[in-house]
């Protein structure tokens, strides 16, 4: 029943997102598109944290690499190959993540990896701010929304809400890819490593290789999200990969729940909804937003997704749910 209710809710929310341009203000449509992208970005981070047990504080840097790659290539007049440009951005993000992972993962995990990745992302941001060819502090503005060609069909993404619907499709595909990775054999092995690294190694799992692959995949998806974001915002600046960007997926995951695949996405949409609802409260918006987030985190330690799962389970079988709640406090990733 839990899955049926959650699945139905997911379908309703997805339909609402697709139909949003027909009834919502253009500001809300822009915010929804942005939220979809950062939700995928958060999902890529949680592949690393929730599944592989690795915390990166520099994922914003990889998002930025994808965004800048897309901006530069579009500026260079390659808008006719938009889908190839997304693939290129993803590949570059993956390659950079692989290079960092090869050096960093053997020597550091935990807080050391977090600080190292944070330092690298900051280094990238400062470097971007000094390169005049990339617009220095002002970045690259006026990025065009290109045409996307699949076989004989070509869609002009600059027209109306075409790019928004393109984002819907692209983000759905990326979510499906993350789901497939997380729930397949690879994801299960990662969870084994997260729960007990020594035991997994004893069982013959090459833990370093699995973590490196997870780091690379997470980086590639983060860069892919960045490449989708550049034509959406139509401007990239060095701050696109700043510390705030890197902390976004952490915040979304805490809010939505690290123990659920959907947690980071729920967190992203909830955060955007709170921010949008309080936008007119100039001066006290941060206090209200922070207060609500604090309340949610304190009231629901397993995040909104954990609370939702518990609620549905309680409705389905109150006695069993209560016994289960008493028996488990720390919960692994739940599908």
């Amino acid at each position: 029943m839990n899955r049926t209710i959650s699945g139905a809710l997911l379908a309703v929310l997805a339909a609402a997102l697709v139909l949003l341009p027909f009834w919502a203000n253009s500001g809300l449509v822009f915010l929804a598109g942005t939220t979809m992208v950062v939700a995928v970005f958060a999902l890529s981070w949680n592949l690393l944290f929730g599944y592989a047990g690795l915390a990166s504080f520099g994922s914003g840097g990889l998002f930025s690499i994808g965004a800048y790659t897309m901006a530069v290539t579009l500026r260079g007049g390659y808008e006719g190959q938009f889908l190839l440009l997304i693939a290129l951005s993803t590949a570059i993000g993956g390659a950079v993540a692989f290079a960092i992972g090869v050096v960093a993962l053997r020597r550091s995990t935990g807080i050391f990896l977090a600080i190292l990745t944070l330092a690298l992302a900051e280094l990238l941001r400062i470097t971007l701010a000094k390169i005049h060819w990339l617009g220095a502090e002002d970045g690259i503005p006026s990025i065009v929304r290109p045409k996307a060609s699949i076989g004989v069909a070509t869609v002009d993404l600059a027209q109306g809400n075409h790019y928004y619907w393109f984002l819907c499709v692209a983000c759905a595909l990326l979510v499906a890819l993350c789901w497939w990775i997380a729930h397949g054999r690879f994801g299960r092995t990662l969870r084994t490593i997260r729960l007990d690294t020594e035991r997994a190694a004893f069982m013959g799992v090459d833990t370093h290789r699995y973590r490196l692959v997870a780091f690379t995949i997470s980086g590639a998806i983060a860069a892919c999200a960045g490449s989708l974001f550049a034509p959406w915002a139509q401007i990239v600046t060095p701050d696109i990969g700043n510390m705030m960007r890197s902390t976004q997926p952490i915040l979304f995951t805490l809010l939505g729940g690290a123990s659920s695949f959907w947690g980071p996405m729920i967190g992203a949409f909830l955060f955007s909804a709170i921010e949008f609802s309080t936008r007119t409260l100039v001066g006290i918006q941060e206090i209200i937003t922070g207060g609500i987030l604090l309340g949610v985190v304190l009231l629901f330690p397993t995040g909104v997704a954990g609370a939702w799962n518990a609620l549905v389970a309680r409705l389905a079988d109150p006695y069993r749910a209560e016994a289960k709640a008493k028996a488990t406090t720390l919960r692994p990733v739940k599908e």
Partner: peptide, 11 residues
């Protein structure tokens, strides 16, 4: 800025 601009123009 773009979110705010689009919201206000939408209004």
């Amino acid at each position: 800025a773009v979110t705010a601009f689009r919201e206000l123009t939408g209004n």
